[in-house]
Design a protein around this nucleic acid. Structure first.
Lengths: 223, 223
DNA sequence: TAACTGTAGTTAGAAGCTATAACCATAGTA
DNA sequence: TACTATGGTTATAGCTTCTAACTACAGTTA
């Protein structure tokens, strides 16, 4: 998970930290992040309560570590998907990779993009990693000219973006807009699906997702 | 908040319940729903711990009540917005009303649409109210014929919806699709904005919201 | 090889939480 | 005026996070 073990002491420490995280994930999976109990994890590992504080200063630090791991995992999955896809299919492949990951790791996804724990501030590294995912989208869109007929609100937004898109580098405002829209539409479907708001409605969320993804990848042509 | 006071006992009970809920909201606002403490609320009200259990059977019941109130509030706001708007502006007015409400009551919004509290199941009444909001969208769209050129994925989705849209009654599948999309796109922007994922990116979320709303209200014509 | 030191673990305990049990006083009612 | 249901109390069990003080040993160094 992390770099060189160096010392055997450090090596053991890493192993235990990873085992703790493992138990934390399985616990999050069925009790949810807010009910994560260090005590329970310790007992599962056959050691008693306060021992865990040798490895994580407090509950928040453990959660932060989990959040970072989730970010890293998502970033890696999207990076791999983008690298493996042909340039023309890249956006589609990204979309399916993201959905697959989200459905396979709902709690990871919600830990990242769900309701923020108040008082808890994501570490700067998290936003850095999140930025790398956005960068992937931006470059994927940069390979396409995005020229649907621009509606009034689109024009306003993109004119505004021209001066406010540090995160998108020097990409065209239309590209920045497209990346943003990709993100929000994908998240709109995924988060509602993961939170269970579609259950009982009877339709297949996969099809809605596909339609949304199409809406944000079509109408675009290669230069 | 609720119906007739009837007896003075019942009246007092209602008042106390409402006061508890009030404290609960302010506590949620700065400590978050998962850290809601009945004990702390009791102390704030000058009475001691277990007294609250006369008014709410347990923590979950209080949260349920808050969720229901949030749903009711949102439903009322949207209903009023729909009623006040001219038929042609109805969707736009709904969109602005929803955003205004979400920004004014971020915790209410996230309590409803955010990460579900683990073990906690929303009461059936909640889904009923949520359904009434969807119904508003469906009828708003029903007044418009929705005929953009249908892309492949749209066709697949709408053919599927034709058999799986109990929640949309006998509306045309294209209408059901439009209502769903309105919901997911609006939520996509709002939830990311409320969760703070746009902070630091520098652009104005209102403009992105406007563009998304436009995307889902344009390309449609009156019959 | 022998002594040293830092680290992983222990138990004890403070402070907080939810929730139940048993009890008391009183407000509203008959 | 007497009764009863209800709102409040304290005590307590069992859970949580987290600190303090102590022990034992692993790895390192002289």
């Amino acid at each position: 998970m992390a770099g060189a073990p160096a010392n055997p002491r450090e090596r053991y420490r890493q192993q235990v930290r990873d085992e703790i995280k493992g138990h934390a994930w399985t616990q999050i999976a069925d009790t949810g992040a807010s009910a994560l109990s260090l005590n329970a994890i310790a007992k599962l590992m056959g050691m008693s309560g306060p021992a865990l504080y040798r490895y994580f200063a407090n509950r928040d630090e453990l959660i932060t570590e989990l959040v970072l791991d989730a970010y890293r995992d998502l970033a890696e999955v999207t990076r791999a998907a983008a690298a493996a896809a042909a340039p023309d299919d890249r956006l589609g492949e990204l979309a399916t990779a993201i959905r697959r990951w989200a459905l396979a790791n709902p709690h990871r996804y919600l830990l990242i993009y769900g309701t923020p724990v108040p008082g808890y501030a994501a570490p700067p590294e998290a936003t850095t990693i999140a930025g790398s995912v956005m960068a992937l989208l931006v470059t994927a869109y940069t390979r396409l000219t995005t020229h649907p007929t621009r509606s009034p609100a689109q024009r306003v937004l993109e004119d505004h973006l021209a001066g406010h898109q540090g995160w998108a580098g020097d990409a065209a405002p239309a590209v920045a807009h497209a990346a943003l829209t990709f993100w929000t539409r994908v998240h709109g479907v995924l988060s509602l699906e993961l939170a269970g708001h579609f259950t009982g409605m009877g339709f297949d969320p996969a099809l809605l997702y596909a339609a949304e993804v199409e809406s944000v990848t079509s109408n675009r042509r290669r230069p």
